[in-house]
Amino acid sequence: MKAMIGFIIVVIFGILILFNLKLEFGGESGIAGEMYIEKGVSETGAVNLVSAILANYRAYDTLGETIIFFIAILGVFTVLKGDKK
């Protein structure tokens, strides 16, 4: 019963998304991407643009990401070693 409801919900969802979404594959890159490709090397000096965005333009995101990783380790440590008697 639950599987049937889930299947119907997913099928309706899928039809609504797949037939109304007008995203073309392989079009032009976005405004921010064009800006990074044009100015990225001269502004940061790194050839690899993914690394340039990750460690320079959006380093604040990376800081949050490392904090999330630290909290995950802390959670695993607490759950697995918390009840050592």
Partner: peptide, 20 residues
Amino acid sequence: PIISGDNLYVDPLPHTLMLT
């Protein structure tokens, strides 16, 4: 998106966000 000369490059922003 590793710049070497005047080629056509893929958008680098989704790659970075997907790494996150």
